[in-house]
Each structure stands twice: as C-alpha cells, then as structure tokens.
Write a protein that binds this DNA or RNA. Sequence first.
DNA 1: CCGTAATATATCAGGCTGATATATTACGGC
DNA 2: GCCGTAATATATCAGCCTGATATATTACGG
Lengths: 174, 174
Amino acid sequence: MNTPELCLGALLCGDASGYEIKQRFETIFSHFQKASFAAIYPALTRLEADGLVTARVETQQKRPAKTIYSLTEAGRQRFIDALHESQGDEIFRSDFVLQMFFAELLDADKLAETLERHEQRLRETIARLEAVRDQGGHSPGQRFTLDYGIAVKRASLAFVEQSKATFIHEEPEP
Amino acid sequence: MNTPELCLGALLCGDASGYEIKQRFETIFSHFQKASFAAIYPALTRLEADGLVTARVETQQKRPAKTIYSLTEAGRQRFIDALHESQGDEIFRSDFVLQMFFAELLDADKLAETLERHEQRLRETIARLEAVRDQGGHSPGQRFTLDYGIAVKRASLAFVEQSKATFIHEEPEP
DNA sequence: CCGTAATATATCAGGCTGATATATTACGGC
DNA sequence: GCCGTAATATATCAGCCTGATATATTACGG
C-alpha cells in the first residue's frame, strides 16, 4: 500500500489533520507501517482533489489552525477495495542481522554491544505493545496485530538470549 | 546501510559482477536485505571511482561479457567501519498486518484467503531457510541469521495457525 | 523453429525518507 | 519574567531507491 491509501486507512479511525495522521502512524500503525510528513501532506492534497476526502479548516484557541480531513463514501470504498486487492506483501530489512552475518568481522566488544542493544530494543517494543494491548478497547483485528507483534518479538528475543553464549566469551578479569 | 555499503559486503563473499551481486541479495541476504539493479550498477561505478573496488572485464565463451568487481583493502576497511558504526536499525512493513488490523472490513472469503496465503508464504520461507541451513558450510554468524529467520517465521506461523479459529467461521454446507 | 528463461547491463519516472524551515504556544527552571 | 525546549501544525527539497522497461545474447524444451 502506498501513502495515499494508508492515509485513507488512518482516516477510517476518525477525522484528522495531517499532523494527527502522522501520530497514528507512530502509535496504532507503528509496528507495521510508516510514513513521513513529506509523503502525507501531498497525499492529502491529492486525495481531496480526487474526492476521496474532504477538508475543513479548524481554528484553535491555543494552537495553530489545522486542516481536518474526513473520508468521503468514495474514499471509504476505495480503501476497502485496496484492502481486498492487497497481496499482503511484507518487507523486512535488518542491519542488525547484517551485523550478525558478518559477526566475525566485529570486535568482541562491538559484537556484545550489538546483541545487548538489540535485546533491549526488543524488550522495549514488547513492553510498549503489551501496554497498548492492556489498555483494551480493541477490535479483534487490532488485537490480532498487537498479539502478533508481541509473539514475533518474543520469539526474536528468546532466540537472541539463547544465542548470546555462542558469540560472547567473557574474558576473565585481569 | 545504503546500497553502496551493502555491495561492499556482498563483495566480501568474493569477487562478482553486478548481476552476481544481485543474486547474492536474492539468496544469502534475501531474508534481511534487498537491492535492485538500478541501485547496484550506479553504486559499483561510484565505488570504483572512490577506489573502494576495482573492475576488470571478463569475456565469456557462452555468455555476455561481464565486469567483475573486487574489493580493495580500502573497500574492505570501509565496510568493516560501516558495520561497526551501524545502529542495527530494522524496518518491518506489512500489508498483511494492515489487512488484519481492518479484518472487520474484509469479506469472510477474503479474510480466510488472506490468512491461508500468509501461512503458506511463511511455510515456504521456513522451508527455504531450512534447506539453506541444512546445506551447511556456514560461519557462526551466517548460521545465526538463518536460525534467527527460522525461529521468527515459525513463531509467526504458530501464531497465525492458532488465531485462525477466531477469524474464520466455517459455514455449514448448504 | 519458437517461446521462455537465464545472463548481463542500463535507465527512467515516480515515490519516499530524512533533513530542514517556519510559526505558534506551552511549560519548566532559574 | 525570561529562556530554552518541546509540542503543534504545515511545507519543501535533495537524494536515494524501487519497479518497470529496454537491449542483446545464449540455452533449453517442445
């Protein structure tokens, strides 16, 4: 899915400004999609021109004015169509795994740091997803995405923990 | 890591043409990195200009001539430096998870197909990684990347299998 | 003999990221 | 009361990258 289609999906969760759509990418979608402001704002302009969203300006007392976008019925249908046509493609790219591929070229110190840093990031991600899950109020689909993320990250963490012994050989204190 | 740096890594596994480097991205690196021809060829030209690789043309009896690239010592050192400086960033983007997030908007048929298609892809990926692993001859680091991929994909598969019942309600035959 | 696949390189349009810029307000510290 | 930092809100640009497409040659199966 490209950024315009993803914006339609974000707006399915409720009317929002470009800034608020970006926030949705960084919260509810954060573990499986992302988009930058530089992709979102032009996408919204284009979607409005195509009649898939409508825009209204909202002036705020204590904040800059914002342009709120709403899905039109055509926009809603377009997103549902895109969801049905999607092939469910996944992209995984990892510099961590690349580092491990060439583990023999890393200093012992750097290798240990790489593994521990990755472990820590996995723990943080798991904790964050669990916190969101435990807030409750999710649809079965939303719940699936959280539990799926947690299951996968836990498996990664377990594997890294278990592999540490193979790669890190503690030097005795001098 | 950007494409030029990744090409240096690919060349660490032995001299290669642009075409052969692409093949390495599709085999040994396939489960954690990727790059297209349109990124690889300009990268190699640039790396040669920077003295990080050398090029030689090799004419073949039964194939078009190819330009073989070799790492220079500077190129080797540059890659090792990049490996040490890398923050081990990971990118995961999944249209499958997006489909599940909005599972309620999918037809029952499409939802079942989405889950089964994803299951099948996971099984294929696991089988491919296991086949490579079972060929043997890998360094500990390479072995780690294969086992890590297998562990993560198995966890994904187990979770999807277990979740199917929640989302797919078999209609009795009419 | 024909079509398809593999080898080998190259390029282009378009999409996206990361960085940067601008303006406003809120808030904590001193 | 002042200053810096953070959050809100939008916008733009260079540069990188993908997907598609093009070209030429050879191998192979039907």
